[in-house]
Write a protein that binds this DNA or RNA. Structure first.
Lengths: 145, 145
DNA sequence: GGGCAATTGTTTCTTGGTTGACAATCTGGC
DNA sequence: GCCAGATTGTCAACCAAGAAACAATTGCCC
């Protein structure tokens, strides 16, 4: 048997691993959920961002909000535009495309959101409301917010 | 302006989003860290799993432990074997490859682990030890453990 | 005004990873 | 014994995302 490093993980490390596992699981589940509509979670993310703001925003801005590369936003918006959920608008600055939610896109969000929110609530049921709040606060600290 | 669904996210949903964001960030940082040794975090994950057990295990087992497909485990073990960190053994069941940590692999873990653990501890510094513990417990509940 | 740096969107290439098919092997019921 | 069904590792095809290069455009500083 080969020699082994004895590993006695610190609380910090154990917590970190758990965080990664939970995050991983949530991403997988979310991806799975959106596949049902032929989208990835990132596609849906774009729609939600657009739904949440009052003015059309540039692709670069979208990328910044969702921590995704500009290159990828191009592709995401491509398929959303093809689905007629989203429209590219030209504006003063000829470099940028402003992206706007269409009627269809808004309707899609409206129809699907309750299912999405329901699933989210379901995933959190193991925790009481108070526990959810403390969890929320702790994660906020971790994110430096 | 197109009609919008009014969104007032529940605590559950806000927490869930934060969980996903934290998880995402940790995965990115961890990936970045391991690139420095020409590995992905999943490669390292395999090594840690092998380091943590006393008996060689099958590839399928590894895949189950780390929530990865068998196909992917094949590729991960391929590069680890090429790096001489790991060895494939045949066993009674001629379908399975048992995978074993080599001396080199054990040494690699030994040399790198402190850096990895250090980084993990650093990432958790925004939280006190007690907070880390409650976080750990809450995540455990969420995972159903 | 003229030029240089910065920004934007796109394209191309690469990379991890999953899925599905496959052959080889094992197991359990008869 | 033997055959149907499950498991295992691998391979090919595909997919989402990132990185780098690029052209078009803008803004700033002199």
């Amino acid at each position: 048997m080969t020699k082994r490093v004895k590993i006695t993980p610190s609380v910090a490390e154990q917590t970190l691993i758990r965080l990664m596992r939970v995050g991983d699981r949530l991403w997988r589940e979310s991806d799975e959920r959106f596949n049902q509509w032929g989208l990835t979670d990132n596609h849906y993310n774009v729609l939600r961002i657009l739904n949440g703001i009052s003015e059309p925003i540039s692709q670069a801005e979208i990328g910044r909000k969702m921590l995704s590369s500009r290159a990828n936003v191009t592709k995401l918006v491509d398929v959303l535009e093809q689905r007629k959920f989203v429209k590219r608008l030209s504006c003063g600055d000829r470099r940028v495309n402003l992206v706007e939610l269409t009627e269809d896109g808004a309707k899609f969000i409206e129809e699907t959101l309750s299912a999405v929110v329901g699933a989210a609530n379901e995933q959190m049921t193991p925790l009481t409301r108070d526990e959810q709040k403390t969890l929320f606060a702790l994660l906020g600290k971790l994110l430096g917010e």
